Structure formats: C-alpha cells, structure tokens
Measured scan of single mutants.
Amino acid sequence: MDVFMKGLSKAKEGVVAAAEKTKQGVAEAAGKTKEGVLYVGSKTKEGVVHGVATVAEKTKEQVTNVGGAVVTGVTAVAQKTVEGAGSIAAATGFVKKDQLGKNEEGAPQEGILEDMPVDPDNEAYEMPSEEGYQDYEPEA
C-alpha cells in the first residue's frame, strides 16, 4: 500500500510541476504579447503594419512553449490582441483601416495563427491545408 501511495504522490508532483510550467509559459506569452502591443503603439504610420505582424510573430513563438489545451486559448487571445492593436492603430490615425491585415508588401496577414497546427491532446499534428499553395516548377 505504501508503494501505491508513494507512486500516487510522485504522479501528483509531476502534474503540479507540469501545471506550473504551463502557467509560466502562458505568463511569458502574455508578456511578449504586451511587449508587441507597446511596440505597435510606438510606431509611426509606416511601421504600424509591420508592428502588428511582430506582435503576432512574438506571440506565436511563445505559444510553442505552452502545451496542451492552453495553446488553443493563448492563440485565440493573441489573435484578438493583434486585431485590437490594429483597431487602436486605425482609431489613433497611425494607419488607414484599409491597410490593416496586410503586410508591407500588401499581402493579407489573416491566418497567421489560424494555420498553425495545434492539437490540445498532444496526440497528432496535421499540416495546414494546401489550398493556398501553388506547385513550383523550376525553369529549365
């Protein structure tokens, strides 16, 4: 019985440690998101679009440190934060509304985080759909 109880105690310690790591990862992701939003706020009209992409990228980098179902929630929060940063930029006159959601080359930025393969159960990952990809044929 002692062996059984000791095993359960060790398992509990492992769960607590994993929860603490997840909590730490979420806190880091939130900190990076805040950094990115402050970065966007300090940019001029020309830099705002690039700044919004930076927020998304920093958040995406930190999301990889967070495991399990938390990833889905962090990704949703990050996307809403990026959308909010863009709205703030438009409201303050840093950028025109028609410039939001495009990178410096004018290509749409939507789907940055949505296409990231995420499995809350950590069982399997699927690649994003290939609808947006084109076949590449090298020139002879």
Rank of each mutant, 00 (worst) to 15 (best):
S9H: 05
E123H: 08
E61M: 10
G31L: 14
T33K: 01
V52F: 04
V26C: 15
Q62F: 03
K80H: 13
K32T: 09
D2Y: 04
G84L: 10
Q62W: 03
D98N: 06
E13Y: 02
T33G: 08
Q109C: 12
D115S: 07
G25K: 11
K21H: 12
T59V: 14
A29P: 00
L38F: 10
D135C: 07
P128V: 04
T22A: 15
E20P: 00
T44E: 00
S9M: 09
E83G: 03
K102C: 06
K58L: 12
H50L: 09
T64C: 03
G106R: 05
G14C: 03
Y39I: 11
E105C: 02
A90L: 10
M5E: 01
D119W: 07
S42D: 07
F4T: 00
K6Y: 05
K60P: 03
G84D: 11
E83Q: 07
T54I: 08
K43A: 13
D135I: 14
K23I: 07
V15N: 00
A89N: 07
V63R: 07
D98M: 07
G25Y: 14
L113T: 09
V63I: 13
E61R: 12
E61W: 14
A91Y: 07
A19Q: 01
G7S: 04
K102F: 00
G51N: 04
A107R: 07
D115Y: 08
A140V: 05
V55Q: 02
E20C: 09
A85G: 13
Y133A: 03
A91D: 06
G7A: 12
G73L: 08
Y125R: 09
N65H: 04
A30L: 15
V49D: 02
E110S: 11
E13C: 13
G93L: 02
K34N: 01
V26F: 06
A30M: 11
A17W: 11
S42R: 01
T33N: 00
S42P: 02
T59M: 09
D135E: 13
G106P: 10
P138G: 07
E35A: 06
K102P: 15
N103D: 06
G7C: 11
L100F: 04
T54W: 13
G73V: 10
V71K: 09
A76Y: 15
E57W: 08
E110K: 11
A56F: 05
A17T: 12
V15H: 00
A30K: 02
T72V: 06
A107V: 08
M5N: 07
T54N: 09
K45S: 09
A90W: 10
A27N: 12
V118Q: 02
E61A: 07
A17I: 11
G68Q: 05
E20I: 07
G86I: 05
V118E: 11
G73E: 10
A90Y: 15
V70T: 03
G68I: 15
Q99C: 11
V55L: 04
V82S: 09
A11G: 05
A27I: 13
G14I: 07
D98I: 07
T44S: 13
E61C: 01
K43S: 05
L8Q: 00
Y39W: 13
E20W: 15
G93K: 14
F4N: 00
G31F: 07
S42H: 02
V118K: 10
E46C: 04
A78V: 10
A69F: 13
E139Q: 08
E20R: 02
H50C: 15
I112R: 12
Q134K: 13
D135R: 03
E110H: 03
T81K: 02
N65D: 07
D121G: 02
G93N: 06
G132F: 07
T75Y: 11
A53K: 04
D121E: 02
G36E: 11
P120C: 13
E131L: 05
V16N: 12
I112E: 10
G111N: 15
T81D: 04
A90V: 15
E114C: 15
A90H: 14
T72D: 03
E35W: 15
A140R: 12
S129G: 11
M127F: 12
K58I: 13
A90C: 01
L38E: 05
A124K: 12
N103Q: 14
G67R: 13
E104N: 01
D115A: 15
G111M: 02
N65I: 04
G84R: 15
K6N: 03
D121V: 11
A76N: 07
T54L: 08
A53G: 06
M127V: 11
Q109N: 01
G67S: 06
N122M: 08
V40T: 01
L100D: 01
L38R: 10
T64S: 15
M116L: 09
A30N: 00
T44F: 12
Y133K: 04
V3I: 09
Q79M: 09
F94A: 06
E126I: 15
G67A: 14
K6M: 14
E137R: 03
A89D: 06
K58P: 00
V3A: 11
E130D: 15
G84Q: 14
E105F: 12
P120H: 06
T92I: 04
A19D: 00
K97Q: 02
Q99L: 13
M1E: 00
K10F: 10
Y133W: 07
G101W: 05
P120V: 03
A76F: 03
F4S: 00
V26W: 11
V49S: 05
V49P: 07
T64H: 09
E46T: 01
V82H: 12
L8A: 01
T22R: 01
Y133C: 15
Q62D: 02
A90P: 01
G47M: 11
V37P: 00
S9W: 09
G73N: 13
L8H: 00
L38P: 00
A107M: 13
V82M: 08
G14K: 10
Y136M: 05
V118C: 13
K60V: 15
Y133G: 13
E139K: 10
V77K: 03
G86D: 10
V49I: 12
E114Q: 07
T64N: 06
A11W: 15
A85D: 06
A78E: 01
D2A: 05
V77I: 08
D115E: 10
V74E: 02
Q109Y: 09
L38W: 08
S129Q: 06
A76P: 01
T54K: 04
M1Q: 00
T81M: 04
P108L: 09
T44I: 13
K45I: 02
A17D: 00
T59S: 06
L100I: 02
A56Q: 04
A107H: 12
E126C: 14
G84A: 15
A89R: 05
D115V: 11
V26N: 00
E114M: 02
G41F: 04
